[in-house]
Design a protein around this nucleic acid. Structure first.
Lengths: 214, 214, 214, 214
DNA sequence: TATGAATGAGACTTCATTCAT
DNA sequence: AATGAATGAAGTCTCATTCAT
């Protein structure tokens, strides 16, 4: 469901501002409890405009989702470029730390993701989560196949299985990171950045023992 | 906040039914979106009754939380008894699998926990999460100190650090388990019980390498 | 509407306690907002009992009203006895001050009266207010006829008119007194007892000029 | 708390109609028992609209209060103009009678005031009563200082004390007036306008004896 | 006689959505 | 294209009253 042409004709900084504020609202309240009343009053635009732009609440949500994913993708693409030429485990570690930095700089992105994942009645939930999984799966597969080609990974590796493990590890690490910004008492308690770095290194070590050539 | 005496005087099967149905509602919808209207109409009781029993929505929630924790505790206590005499890693593995079975049998318990953790505006959130952490921490410390006493763990182990790692591992495993019951597409995909068993064994192995005597 | 025989058979201290607590509730909240829930929970008796005793809320209210009036009557009767033999204006002044003291000691009585007078949807309102007027009228007529018999009042006095003026004066004085206990900012501001005494003396003086023999 | 711009943008006859109907509801039922359900159904508008206009019940109440005070002020300002040039006691008498006429024409205004004064849990109660007191105090001080300047009042008058007495007298007179419209049986019973006029004259006479030059 | 569990109407309030201007 | 007034369903919660035990 694309946004209306009305929305596309807006100056792009206004488009950005609307999507960004909506992302904040969804990240803070989840889908169902997000209030379009609050949103428009923060934006200073008319309520009707939101409905002209996005048709209804699910429509807005869908756009915000794409907007959030696009941000993450852009970030990770840059990481992938930056790490070209390094060995696969270094690249994984850089990805971990890049994710953690992104969360520290902008926790709303991951909070948004967690709400979608756990809330329940979110529209397009299946499609949205599948899209994330696909992206994450592609990203990891890319690294792994490069790693095999370079001889850093066992050639007999079950690629799908390995991707699953790596994916889980990445996500668990990010959940721990975002928890620090949600006062659950469950984060990397009192951990400064160097704590996070050590944890990342440990996780990657574990992966190396399981996946690397002997 | 204890339930009113009105509630305590109810026949205990009715008490159980009310708490159980409320647990379902909170597990499915989270705190804010849980509807007492829906709850009472499913229970076939009057709206006012819920408020007599629990005073208000946070009061009900608080009771449901205790009810859920009690169920988990009872289960885990039994596991701890059953595994007495085994070595510490076997006991950990049994705990993992017991948790996974419990989730398979009753996914609402862990879904409820996840909603509390990620939703945001849940009443008593800090207190509730602290209570879980404390319980889980005690449970694990118990196992670890036994393990040291029996010479299965390195005597120079930093107990607090080790408990944290084990705790994280347990929780990550359980999140993966519950995902299967929430159609997120992120669970142990298509994994039968033997898949889960293999994953549990792998995790415990990893722990053994880090924590066990060399 | 008399209380049920069930109520009359109660030990009289329990009767008194119930009516007294109910008076407090009505005085604080008025008729409609008074809560029988709150009342019974303060009394520690069952809700059903109130309905057995008084049939319904209006029934309770009616009894509380009689109870309150009886208290006032008892008090004023004593004042009337105490002041026998004094001249009529002294007796009026004593009545004023007695009323003011009673309000200071037990503001609920007069607050109850004010609520009934101004609230609107109070059951038996007409009957209740008429009953008060009758009592107050009788009390004042008693004083005035004594005053005429003793030659302290002009013999050509229009008794009914005079009673009305005296009645209004009394009530206005009491309203001013009770206001101090309702933080309306409209009472005898900062007035200690001697202020009230001076005001009472002034009012009676005014009455003497209008009603006394020349 | 100003009304929302939504309300201010309404056609002013609709604004007036809403405030007027709300005034009726509050005057008849007091604050707590006033029903917004009843109000909107009498107005024929949707429930949500009231909350858009005034945010919540206290917000509506606050506006109705200002609306009522404004009506009284407008009326009294006219009286003050009309009576310029008369001596101070004539002006007081005109004010009394004007107040009484206003109550006869629109009893809800004063009923509303009485509810606020006696009800108890009214929002902004302190502020509201203070606002009335201030206005009334200013109005009277204006008259009195003019009276002193013109040599009609004793120059040694304690102005604050005198204002208090006049204020009380005015209010007492108005309470008596409004009672006629509340079937309390406590008003100026059966008193036609000429009765009220005589009472007003008598009160002013009394004031003249106390405050006027000898 | 006394109890207190059950009831359901009605209170205030928030919300997504529509549509005339 | 943009506005924002209007809507009414659904939310939590309080209350007087009934009735089986």
């Amino acid at each position: 469901m694309p946004p209306s042409s009305t929305f596309n004709n807006l100056p792009s900084d206004k488009q950005e501002r609307i999507l960004d504020e909506a992302l904040s609202e969804f990240a803070a309240k989840g889908y169902a409890r997000a209030s379009l009343n609050r949103l428009v009053s923060r934006l200073g635009i008319a309520k009707g405009s939101i409905f002209k732009y996005f048709r209804d609440k699910p429509g807005l949500f869908s756009q915000v989702f794409d907007f959030a994913v696009e941000r993450v993708k852009r970030h990770l693409r840059r990481v992938r470029e930056d790490s070209r030429g390094q060995d696969v485990f270094t690249r994984l570690e850089m990805s971990l730390l890049a994710g953690q930095e992104m969360i520290a700089a902008n926790p709303r992105l991951f909070q948004f993701y967690l709400k979608v994942m756990f809330e329940g009645d979110v529209p397009f939930r299946g499609r949205l989560l599948a899209s994330i999984r696909l992206f994450s799966h592609d990203y990891i597969m890319d690294l792994l196949t490069d790693g095999i080609a370079d001889g850093q990974l066992r050639p007999d590796l079950d690629l799908e299985m390995a991707a699953l493990v790596v994916d889980a590890t990445l996500e668990r690490f990010l959940i721990a990171s975002v928890m620090e910004h949600m006062d659950t008492g469950l984060g990397l308690k009192d951990a400064g950045p160097e704590q996070a770095a050590r944890l990342a290194a440990g996780l990657v070590d574990t992966l190396r023992q399981g996946l690397g050539v002997r």
